[in-house]
Structures are given as C-alpha cells and as structure tokens.
Amino acid sequence: MPQFFLNKRLIFLLISIIILVALIGFSLRDREELTVPEQFLKDTTGWIQNVFAKPQSYVSGIFGDLKDLQNTYSENKELKSRLDEMAKLEADVQQLTKENDELREILDKKETLRDYSPIQATVIGRNPDRWHELLIINKGKVNGIKANMAVVTANGLIGKVKSTQQFTSTVQLLSALDPTNRISAEIQGKEAGKESFYGTIEGYDEERELLKLKRIPFDAKIEKGQNVITSGLGGIFPEGLPIGKVVDVEPDEFGLNQTAYVKPGANFYDIRNVMVVKREMAQPDLSDMIDDEEEEL
C-alpha cells in the first residue's frame, strides 16, 4: 500500500485531476467577465484570425457565387413573381410606418421595445469541437458590444453575446445547450388581428435540429407555419426580431403547457456577417423587479 502512494505518476495524475475539476468548476460558474489573461489570449488569437478571415471569406465567396450561378434561372423566375407583391407591400409598409409615427406623436410615446441600433460584425472564428456552439466576431468592447446582446443575421436571430473582450467577442448560438439561454418569444397570429401567444425558447433538439418553444398556454391554438419573433419582454432583446416558423406542436409532459418546435429562420452553419443588436430602451434593473420586502423580515 505505501508503495502505491509513492508512485510518482499516480500522484501526479491525481493532482492533475483535482486541478481539472477545479478549473472546470471555476469556468462553469456564472462568470460576469472572463479573467484578464483569458481576454488577452482571445484578443491576440483574434488578431491572427482576423488576418486569415479575409482571404478565407474571399475564397469561399467565389465558391458561393459559383453555386448561386447554377440556380440563377429558377431563382429569377420565382423572384419576378414576387416582385409584384413587393411593390404593394412596400407602399403599405410606408403608409403604416408614417401612420404609426403620427399616432405615436399624438400619444407622446417616443420609445418602444422595437427600437434598436445595429452593430455590423464579421465572423472570424468558430469553435471547431462543435460541442459548445460558439462564434468569434471581430467587434468588442471598443465598439460598444456588451454581454447578452442579441445577435442576428439577415434571416433571423442566431444567438447572444456570451462574453466580450476589447477587440473581439464570443457569440453563443441558439443551438447551444445552455439552461440559462432563455428567450421570451411571441407566436404571431396567422392573420392580422388574431391573438398571439407567448412562450420562452428553451433548448434545442439536436436530432431534429429544431428549437423548443415551451410554456405556451394549453388552450392556445397554434398551427404549422406561424411566425415566431422575440417579444422583448425578457428585458434584454428588442421586440420583433424574427426567430423562425412553427413546425410542430406537442402538449408537454404534464399537459399543463404546450411545446412548439420551431424551425430557425437563420442557418446556424453558414454564418459570415452578423449584426449585434443594441436595445435602445433601458433595461429593467434586476433589483427593481425583485421584491426586497423579504429582506426586511
């Protein structure tokens, strides 16, 4: 037995396992910010990645263009058919926005949950091990990016900012399995004037590649193809960012709520340029929302 403990290698292994567990525990904690050495390392590699990102996007751009050329004809046909609708829609939208502005002025209500200012960014890296779905983008604190901001592409919401450094930030995709990743969402009524329902996006079905929209009231009638957008009620994201479309609805395990499966509008794999969305309306202070009466007791 004493010989067993004298074995240097074994002790070394045990110590490294202890360090491993301690490090994992340290990094899984709800960290507000990464440590300074980590930020420094990420910024340095971000700089190198930036150098490589330019030629890479150029080359893959060429391949993308070639692929686009292949189905130009059929695409063109479809687009032409939609063009007529577009003209009418555009006129409608303009009229509605104007009317909306006027009405808002009458009510003297300037800010809405809808307002946001976008920050353009380019993706310079992606986690290769594909367990933690993370992207690295080339804008950081200097550009005004803060943790928990929403990140969108042209097709819809893709995730949120997980951590920021001076010159780069890390984006966590919606497909990452993270129990703290909850987004308040709204299922829009199929036609104008119909009731819309609220729920929260919680989790991702890896095998079906669909987002799970939970906590929808059991009596809500939801159909396939209804649009899902952010509701802005979570306090961080602005309202009205598109998320996707409902594919399937199931009652949850206790029958008290429903769970809708949402096909994300954005492709989580082919991401080059993203927009980080900064909400204009003030974020509610967490301490305001918690009753502090309990503490007085």
Partner: peptide
Amino acid sequence: LLFDVVYTEVLGIYLF
C-alpha cells in the same frame, strides 16, 4: 490551454 480559452471557454478539458 489555448484551445480551452479561445474556443470553448470551459477551462481544463483540452488542457488535461
């Protein structure tokens, strides 16, 4: 260590 810091943000797994 570099892999953990830059790509996964969970320290320790690749380092070990």
